Simulated assay, not measured.
Amino acid sequence: GTPQTIAGLETGYAVMALGKFGGRDLGYASDIELLLIYGDAGFTSGPQVIGNAEFYEHLVRKVKESIQARREGIFKLDLRLRPYGNTGPLACSLESFCRYYGTGGDAHSLERLALVRLRAIGGDRELGPRIERLRDEILYTARGIDLSELRTLRRRQLKNKTLKGRLNAKFSPGALVDLEYTVQILQVVYGAGNPEVRTPYLLPALKRLHSAGVLAAFEAKRMTESYAFLHKLINSLRMLRGSSEDLFLPLLESQEYAHLARRMGYKLSPALSPGQQLHLDFETHTAFIRTFVEKHLGRESLPGLASGNIVDLILSEHLPGPLKYKILKNLGMEEMERAVVNLKKLAGRGRQREHFVKL
């Protein structure tokens, strides 16, 4: 039968995209993150009457079972971003969506932040845009996002998803999630007063945050370049390994690292091998992102306060003393304060500092 409201009116559903799919930024082997929301509680018409919740649960389960990737970990259908995650129903009503994400709801701050990329892609043509408007009312409010909750979760990610001594393109300090989270947080913070920054698309968000006066032109440009680099790196890692799960960079001197660098387009130069060029670019872009996070959310928003390199030393205004000492010691320098002052003098300011870092 057809799902109906208690009053007997037909009730539709909307298919909402989230994550990379919602942001129209799918890469190689990205998960396809979806959420199905139906309009109202009630029962189906027809000879075998069941509740709307049961009807849509059955529908989503059948769709999930009918879609299979050709390889494990490649374009997997991901329904975990629904209310209550894996413990919740596969589809949710509009009422339960508003209750879960709204004021006093059970949603974690990261779940609320994920709504930035919520986008209607199918189903009822009126219900989808209505959900997007409700999302705006829920998300871009004075309540905003609990930064302390996000910082705790980010530290947990670093502990559980990285390995000591190994670089991870997604979860290392200054890697992809730090850039994505920070841009989305800025959208939420400034979206209440600046509706133009409300977009599910990250690169346009950077441009709009600049237009709204939140980001300087060089910041928007720098983060656009860093995002493009990390996106290409992650795609290359997934193609190299045939899986979306393992985003650890290979060991620097390994054949796999050299293969990865060549896949990304690095060529042998008189001074540096392709692998060395890739390593320097990774260190530079992640330092750019750490400085970006530090400026807008504070150094405490970065997990692993002991992470950094000489680029952090040049760009950061709030680098902890022990980290400065660690970086300089690795460079063979002993007079810490003098070395920092001299490096910053050599680097200069503004665009001059940008060019110095690249050198």
Score class of each variant (00 low, 15 high):
32 I>G: 04
116 V>C: 12
270 P>S: 08
266 Y>A: 03
271 A>M: 09
287 A>G: 11
317 E>G: 06
278 L>S: 12
264 M>F: 06
70 R>K: 11
48 Q>M: 05
283 E>W: 10
136 D>N: 15
2 T>G: 12
282 F>E: 12
319 L>D: 02
120 A>I: 06
274 P>H: 12
210 H>V: 00
31 D>K: 02
96 S>A: 11
208 R>K: 15
26 L>E: 01
46 G>M: 05
205 A>N: 04
49 V>F: 03
285 H>L: 05
237 L>I: 09
8 G>W: 06
185 I>Y: 12
173 P>V: 03
249 L>P: 01
133 R>N: 12
340 V>T: 07
294 E>K: 01
123 G>W: 15
292 F>R: 03
128 G>W: 05
39 G>V: 03
324 K>W: 07
99 R>W: 07
172 S>E: 04
156 R>Y: 10
207 K>Q: 12
154 R>Q: 14
354 E>R: 05
334 E>S: 13
266 Y>Q: 00
114 A>W: 06
79 L>E: 02
103 T>F: 04
24 R>Q: 09
283 E>F: 10
334 E>L: 10
257 Y>P: 07
313 L>C: 09
201 Y>E: 15
276 Q>S: 09
285 H>M: 14
45 S>E: 07
354 E>D: 14
84 Y>I: 00
244 S>I: 03
354 E>F: 08
33 E>P: 05
348 G>K: 05
44 T>P: 02
220 A>G: 06
350 G>P: 02
206 L>N: 13
